[in-house]
C-alpha cells in the first residue's frame, strides 16, 4: 500500500494542486489530508473543490473545528501574545471568507482516520492522537512518550502534522511516528518549497525500509518526504491583494517564518532566521 499524506494546507491551493499532481505521478493508492485547511493564505474556499474532486479524505484539524463551528479563534494552542496577534489576523480573514457550505463540510470531518495497511494499524491525526492541537516537535518529544502514545492508541504508525516541520522517529518494534510537515507554508529553512510524505507498506515499501514487527507480523514500512515546488510568487501576490500581513508574504517569498515563533522550542527556533 502506498499513501500520500498531506499536512496543513493553510489555504495554499497552489501548493495543494502541485502536491496532488506529484502524488498522482507516484501512483499512490490514496491521498489523505491531516487537517488545517485554512489559515495564513488567500481565498480559503479554493482548496475545497480540489480535495473533493480528488476524493481526498481529511482529518479535522483545530482550524477546521474552529471555522466549521465559527468559534472565536483558531485553537492553534499558541500561548504568547505575539503569536496570537498574527494568528487572529489570519483566523478572522479565513472565517470571513469561507462559505457556509464549506463550513458545514469542515464541521463534519472526523477527528482521526484509522487505516489497515498490510495488517498494520495506521493512525492519521492532526496534532497528536490524544489532542488535536498538541504540538509534537522533534526536539521536545522523547521516544518514550511516542511509544506510550502508540501503545495507548493502538497504532503501529502514527501520522500527524500541526507543528509545520516534517520529521520522523523510529519507535519500539519498528513502529514509527511521522510528522508529514505542511503544504501551507515553507519550513523555516530558507527554502520556498513545502513538504508532504509518502508512506509505503508491504511490497510497495522502498528497499531498506524499516521492518515493523508487531503481533505476528513483520511488515516493511518506508517513509519518504517529498519537497513540493509551486508558484509561490503568485501566492504572495494574491495574499497581498487580499491585504494579508506583509510578514506572511515574506515567509512565502523567503522561506523563513516571521510570525508564530514563540511556540518554537529553541532548537527549531535557532534553525530559522528570526
Amino acid at each position: 500500500m502506498k499513501l500520500a499524506l498531506f499536512g496543513g494546507l493553510y489555504s495554499n491551493y497552489l501548493a495543494l494542486g502541485s502536491a496532488i499532481a506529484d502524488a498522482q505521478q507516484r501512483n499512490v493508492d490514496a491521498v489523505y489530508c491531516l487537517g488545517d485547511l485554512g489559515a495564513f493564505g488567500p481565498y480559503p474556499d479554493r482548496v475545497f473543490p480540489l480535495l473533493q474532486q480528488h476524493n481526498i479524505l481529511c482529518v479535522q484539524g483545530n482550524y477546521d473545528d474552529s471555522i466549521g463551528n465559527e468559534l472565536n479563534d483558531c485553537q492553534c494552542g499558541y500561548t504568547d501574545p505575539k503569536d496570537n496577534y498574527f494568528a487572529q489576523i489570519s483566523y478572522d480573514y479565513t472565517l470571513a471568507n469561507t462559505s457556509d457550505q464549506n463550513k458545514l463540510w469542515l464541521r463534519e470531518l472526523p477527528k482521526e482516520i484509522r487505516l489497515q495497511c498490510d495488517g498494520l494499524n495506521i493512525l492519521l491525526c492532526h496534532g497528536s492522537p490524544r489532542r488535536t492541537n498538541e504540538f509534537l516537535w522533534e526536539s521536545t518529544t522523547s521516544p518514550a512518550f511516542l511509544n506510550r502514545l502508540a501503545g495507548e492508541h493502538d497504532a503501529d504508525v502514527i501520522v500527524g502534522t500541526h507543528s509545520g516541520i516534517h520529521w520522523q522517529r523510529e519507535l519500539n518494534h519498528g513502529r514509527q511516528y511521522v510528522n508529514v510537515g505542511v503544504l501551507g507554508r515553507p519550513e523555516n529553512d530558507g527554502n520556498r518549497n513545502v513538504w508532504y510524505a509518502v508512506i509505503s507498506t508491504g511490497k510497495d515499501a522502498t528497499p531498506g525500509a524499516l521492518l515493523c514487527s508487531v503481533r505476528d507480523l513483520s511488515v516493511p514500512v518506508s517513509v519518504e518526504f517529498i519537497p513540493v515546488r509551486y508558484d509561490h510568487h503568485r501566492l504572495a501576490t494574491e495574499m497581498q491583494s487580499e491585504r494579508l500581513p506583509d510578514e506572511f508574504l515574506q515567509t512565502v517569498l523567503n522561506g523563513w517564518w516571521t510570525t508564530c515563533l514563540e511556540i518554537l522550542p529553541s532548537r527549531e527556533r535557532r534553525a530559522g532566521q528570526y
Binding site: 521536545t140 518529544t141 522523547s142 518514550a144 512518550f145 506510550r148
Partner: peptide, 9 residues
C-alpha cells in the same frame, strides 16, 4: 524509571 511511564520531557 521514567521510560515505562512515557515521560516526554
Amino acid at each position: 524509571e521514567s521510560v515505562e511511564h512515557g515521560v516526554r520531557e
